[in-house]
Amino acid sequence: MTRSEPLLVAFCCYWCAYAAADLAGGMRLSYPPNVRVVEVPCSGRVEPELILRALNEGADGVMVAGCLEGDCHYQRGNLRARRRVERLRRLLEELGVEPERVEMFNLSAAMGPRFAQIVAEMTERLRGLPPRKFQAVEEAGA
């Protein structure tokens, strides 16, 4: 399967990045339309399984966006998220997937322009990578 534009999944914290995405829209800022924003209660909610699943189901890249360091509504969720993303990137390398497809960002609810800029940067980065080979979606029960 190929597509003209890379698909980017953005897990955005309710307290900051999701509001920043909202603000970017409210400010009428233009950013690539290939991003799918998923609201999460905290970036610390984003388990590695969710990122891997997004990649398995067709995402070309995943960004996790949490509050600025020191500003987490739950104190340390964003710090944990960053460490999990770093660990997952090492696993991705072992799986044969470019680790730069996954990235953690920190921003505040007031940083609408920064959100638009990050989406544009990630999209540009993904465009520069070879197209992904991924399998059809299989339901993984537990």
Partner: peptide, 8 residues
């Protein structure tokens, strides 16, 4: 991870 690795 196994699905991703195999798919790649």
């Amino acid at each position: 991870a196994i699905r991703l690795w195999a798919g790649e």
